[in-house]
Nucleic acid binder design. Structure first.
Lengths: 226, 226
DNA sequence: TTCACACTTCGACGGTAGACGAAGCATCCG
DNA sequence: CGGATGCTTCGTCTACCGTCGAAGTGTGAA
């Protein structure tokens, strides 16, 4: 018996390799132009245009025109969540990328997962926050402790502002490379922002990697590591 | 730049209408035979066989031989999670099923979401548990309260047993029909089991609907409703 | 042993969707 | 203005994949 929304159209959108590459690129959280996405997918601009209109029609991405460019981004964090979930299943099922890119080690070490930190250092931060007793997790379930309510404002994070957002304040996100949890949600996003602001790290321009400076990494560790 | 596991193969598996129907059927949590799945998808046995071997090869489902039947089930709750996420995105993007089945109202009212209760009554239960103060949720984040640690054992649910499972004890799951949260995780599954055990409801044989008896529904409401 | 049934394999067919070249609009820049 | 750039539309080609009929394997029932 048929019930529920049909997932075939949505899945089919993500099921084409070219489109999948585009979506993966957009998982960086950045808005990209049609041409950039075409390069990302390794196809011509014409073909990309067709794919992009399908993705937009399907509600997975949204495009805004700016001058003669057209910038695309994922239409929401639910799409990003879905894509990460799919990557998780893919990783478990052994569908690893056949040709790991040159940036692969960096990407495993630290990368953005839509708008928060993932990879080894993401997991490290999650563990560190737990050890400090400022967050408490049980299974999938993460909460800010009373201790945390004092801790985060001292880092320059205003929890009351974050709580106003409709998205969950904190949640865990299973890391495909580490098979461990890292911190997602608006708190995760705010922490990554702080890392940028402090100058500890910057985004790689061509991948999802987050590049820590030597001093940034040691400060990061002194704050979170064992 | 390519990074991460490639989602295209996984998505493509779910992207075919016939396979999507099979997966949706398996979302009921029941194991189904190849022939049942063929009927579900509206295709011949030969075609179904080909699809099923692809799904199995892709790691989305697992099959076991029993006599001359072969039973298939989803390979894990992560796959179920992924499918529900996709339905959520599909619902938001307006990809509703063109031809709602006859069981649709029942399915909207109460259905299984892999192994826990979803639909109107699922949301009702979630709200009721919150109002009773036995669970506390903030965004995506759900916890059992101290009050809950006394409450659930009285219902015949042993929390320490549930905690041993590797899956999260409780988490919320966004309902595609209600756009509200209901309770997933091993606690959600245990609650649905209790509902069956008490004789309040039984599974519909042909759909994901959960059929409450008149008295079962009133007992359910007296327990959870406002 | 013989038939019935569940499922798989093989082979052929057909529709569809992704690919690009060429051409057409817009927009910015000198 | 005129040329360059970014993107879209059109038309065409090709390759792949889902589909089923027919035949094959294995299991259970009579």
């Amino acid at each position: 018996m048929k019930d529920g929304p049909s997932l075939a159209p949505i899945a089919a959108l993500a099921g084409d390799p070219a489109r999948a590459n585009m979506l993966t690129a957009l998982l960086s959280g950045k808005a990209l132009t049609a041409t950039e996405l075409a390069n990302e997918a390794g196809i011509t601009a014409q073909t990309a245009s067709s794919h992009l209109s399908k993705l937009e029609g399907g509600g997975l991405i949204a495009g805004v025109k700016q001058g003669r460019h057209r910038y695309f981004r994922l239409s929401g964090s639910d799409v990003a969540d879905m894509l990460e979930k799919m990557m998780g299943v893919a990783a478990r099922a052994g569908h690893l990328r056949t040709r790991p890119g040159p940036s692969d080690p960096q990407v495993r070490k630290a990368r953005v997962c839509y708008d928060h930190l993932a990879g080894e250092m993401g997991v490290e931060m999650f563990d560190g926050l737990s050890r400090l007793g400022v967050i408490a997790s049980r299974g999938d379930d993460v909460k800010i402790t009373r201790k945390g309510e004092a801790f985060f404002p001292k880092m320059g994070i205003d929890l009351s502002v974050l709580a106003q957002s409709r998205r969950p304040l904190c949640k865990s996100c299973l890391d495909w490379s580490q098979r461990r949890s890292h911190l997602a949600g608006s708190l995760g996003a705010a922490l990554l922002d702080r890392i940028y602001d402090e100058g500890w790290a910057m985004r790689d321009r061509k991948s999802r990697a987050v590049l820590f400076s030597r001093s940034g990494e040691s400060k990061f560790r002194s704050m979170f590591a064992a």
